[in-house]
Amino acid sequence: MKFGVVVFPGSNCDADCLHAIKTVTGQPVDYIWHKSGSVDGYDCIVLPGGFSYGDYLRCGAVARFSPVMSPVIEFARRGGLVLGICNGFQVLTEAGLLPGALHRNKNLSFLCHDTYLRVENDISPFTSLASRGSVIKVPIAHGEGNYFADSDTVRRLEENNQVVFRYCDYNGEITQGVNPNGSVNNIAGICNEQGNVLGMMPHPERCAEEILGNIDGQLIFKSLLETWQRRCG
């Protein structure tokens, strides 16, 4: 399985993602420059966190028009696996690959701390090794992570099992008190209708090694590898 990590001007989690993928999966992984016109040869594309193009206009709005995004969009529409983390999630919504938008955090402050996530969808390629209702601890680091969508869109997300992660407490309880940024329905990560595109605000690459004191983030990368291996027989 071959991974590609897109690098935009202002990305600051690209090296973290590349290192985590290589360490956790043992699979080949390359950087893909934002001016690239092709993503041929890759099995999974990762859009990392950071501040692409300085978050000018709004987060992800300029990156969406990078030359690389046209082949990424086509790759996703053909069923290719795409993971957007933090700023990558914001880019995916701007590109129309995921519904909704990410607004300023409810307290208008940048947040950087661990959060607990409840796995709501255990059949996605990104959570195939999890069980529904299980809880993982993954850090956040964002100023615009407040997920919002109109009521009809939220209803469809819930009905179609597209909510993959939800902010919760240690025991998996969903309350507003553990919602760090004001996201509707405590949503921390969603997938598209086909299930091959995931956007999530928390950073699994920052909790994927023993030396970091937490390996819960391995779930996402190992699930991707397991999904790919299963698809290839």
Rank of each mutant, 00 (worst) to 15 (best):
G80E: 10
V163H: 04
Q90C: 03
Y147M: 04
G145N: 04
Y42T: 05
V5L: 09
H203C: 06
E193A: 15
M1T: 12
G182M: 05
F75E: 11
F110C: 03
E120H: 09
Y147F: 15
L219R: 14
F8H: 03
D169K: 10
C112L: 00
F221T: 06
V72P: 12
C112R: 08
P139Q: 07
L111M: 09
I140F: 01
V72Q: 12
C17T: 06
L219K: 14
T25D: 11
V6C: 11
N105C: 07
L225D: 05
Y116L: 04
S66D: 13
N87P: 02
A95C: 14
H142G: 06
L212P: 02
C44A: 14
I140Q: 00
G195S: 07
R78L: 00
G26Q: 14
C59H: 01
N87G: 01
V46S: 01
E94H: 08
D55Q: 03
D152P: 00
H19R: 15
I45N: 09
V91C: 08
V135C: 15
G172E: 05
H113F: 13
M1G: 08
S38T: 14
D14Y: 03
A20Q: 06
T93Y: 02
V62I: 13
V7P: 03
S36W: 05
R58F: 03
V29K: 02
L92A: 08
P202C: 06
I45F: 08
I21E: 07
